[in-house]
Write a protein that binds this DNA or RNA. Structure first.
Length: 114
DNA sequence: AAGGTGACTAACA
DNA sequence: ATGTTAGCCACCT
């Protein structure tokens, strides 16, 4: 019944783990799948606070424009770009802005039954 | 307790 | 196309 922070964060982490290697998802997309379509910013924060040793593929979440938008010191844009490239995702360097073609790489989950 | 912040987004101009 | 604004909502001080 009660929806609470723990549930939301759990759902966010669960869903991010579902993003396949070589694909990316958007913050809003993860929020919507988690049942909180207006909570895109919370997804960003949830990824900001994951432990260093976490297996959560935080690098696969980018913004709606296909742009790497992290400002986190421990997870900087260059690191995110490098990991994504190593996973086979093309990252275009547009004057220091790292962009990904969502038409090509956006994760399109089949249906989630839960 | 109350206001500020931000790894967001859609809607405008 | 590029820039601005207004909603958003859990978390922080």
């Amino acid at each position: 019944m009660g929806k609470n922070k723990a549930n939301l964060y759990s759902k966010i982490y669960f869903l991010v783990k579902k993003i396949p290697k070589g694909r990316v998802a958007t913050y809003g997309q993860i929020a919507a799948l988690a049942g909180a379509p207006r909570a895109a910013r919370i997804v960003g924060y949830a990824l900001h606070v994951i432990p260093e040793n976490s297996k959560i593929p935080w690098q696969r979440v980018i913004n709606r424009q296909g742009i790497i938008s992290t400002t986190c010191q421990t997870h900087p844009p260059t690191l995110q770009r490098d990991i994504l490239i190593s996973e086979g995702v093309e990252v275009i360097n547009n004057k220091g802005v790292f962009q990904i073609d969502l038409k090509k790489y956006l994760w399109e989950p089949k249906f989630f039954r839960g």
